[in-house]
Design a protein around this nucleic acid. Structure first.
Lengths: 212, 212
DNA sequence: TGTACATCAGTGAACGCGCGTTCACTGATGTAC
DNA sequence: TGTACATCAGTGAACGCGCGTTCACTGATGTAC
């Protein structure tokens, strides 16, 4: 977070207040994991955080505001993963990088699935703030993938008919979406490692045009 | 719908009642398109359908029940698309089939995106009825894709390290997810046709192991 | 180091609204003769 | 074809609950001297 955290009245808040705010965010995240986002109430959050609704309104304008803050945090945590995409994937070690990237991304989503799910729902339903949060979080990954795809199109390794941007989005779509299938996968005998490897292969092949 | 539609008291309903029920479902779908699923109220639905809340409860136990019915309908409408997957994709015409499949699936999702989005959210949040609705809708596609993938693994066209089930899921994930990016794509100069073609290429390459 | 005061932070309690839900009733449709 | 009755379908109106939101206050922390 670059900017100082503020209360809803604009005042910059101190350490005690920051702790309370964090407790409220934690409570929001916790409830989001066990209940449906469709009925997340301010009052539930404050009960979970052992504080009062009046306190909640000191830091957030409503529940969706709190969720938005969580979504932004989750987005920031994802940033370091971009490193996996900065390596050159051609050559012998490319597969390793693809595997690391797929694994890291999946882990990240697993750790924040409830929040990211709501973020994406809100974004898809047209909420601008959530749209921007998603866009901001995904942009570095999209850009890096697009660059790789364009480079490999130039060198003739993959079809020039692919839209680099749509292809990159497709890759992120797989990563984002499949996390929610993990339970079903395990019922069907597909382990998490199987899944990660499969995704790494798909991504690697798509981006580089090489066989695994 | 195989089974006769019933009122909440178990009584089989007649033509007039069926119309009312349909009006309520239409109103639900309409509201879902313009408002967030996070605040869809029984009372709004009945206002939209120009009827009374008491009527609503004759046919549905709550809003989520109505959404579930819509999700099931959407699932049934998707069934015919399976035809595109029954052809053999190897050989010269394979690419055409892949393109038809991608286009049809995208069109279907675009026509029901609001409902399918909520269906998936609820399923991911652990609601059993929605989980089953999603599973039922996707199963034929998953099975058909898995069969194709396994066949091509046997003949050595694609890597045997891929989990056929995870790969098939990945393909559906792309199709389901990218619909929500259409707006952003068009801003970036990626037309719907570009997108469909890109998806067809990705699916075709992944499943058959052939270059486009 | 202690004290007085200023500012920060938290909350009890209340208000009012709007929604979910139901009941008893009215009106519409179907059917038997 | 008309009429009487049974059943189906729709709804007005009310109740009560629970939540969102706010205000005026109390308590905690920081700071100046």
């Amino acid at each position: 977070m670059r900017t100082k955290v503020q209360a809803t009245d604009g005042r910059v808040i101190g350490t005690r207040a920051t702790q309370t705010r964090t407790r409220l965010l934690d409570a929001t995240a916790k409830l989001l994991e066990k209940r449906s986002a469709l009925d997340l109430k301010v009052i539930d959050v404050t009960r979970e955080a052992r504080t009062s609704p009046a306190t909640f309104y000191q830091y957030f304008s409503d529940v969706s505001d709190a969720v938005l803050q969580l979504a932004r945090q989750a987005g920031e945590e994802a940033e370091p993963m971009i490193a996996h995409l900065e390596h050159d994937w051609t050559g012998a070690t490319g597969k390793q990088y693809a595997l690391h990237f797929a694994s890291a991304f999946i882990e990240h989503w697993m750790g924040h699935s409830a929040i990211l799910r709501v973020r994406n729902l809100q974004a898809e339903e047209g909420d601008d703030a959530f749209r921007r949060a998603r866009g901001r979080a995904l942009k570095p990954f999209l850009d890096a993938l697009v660059a790789k795809i364009e480079a490999n199109q130039k060198s003739g390794r993959i079809s020039k008919e692919l839209s680099p941007y749509a292809t990159a989005s497709a890759i992120l779509a797989i990563l984002e979406r499949l996390v929610s299938y993990i339970d079903i996968f395990e019922q069907r005998g597909v382990s998490q490692d199987d899944m990660k490897r499969t995704l790494a292969i798909l991504i690697f092949q798509t981006v580089t045009g090489e066989a695994w």
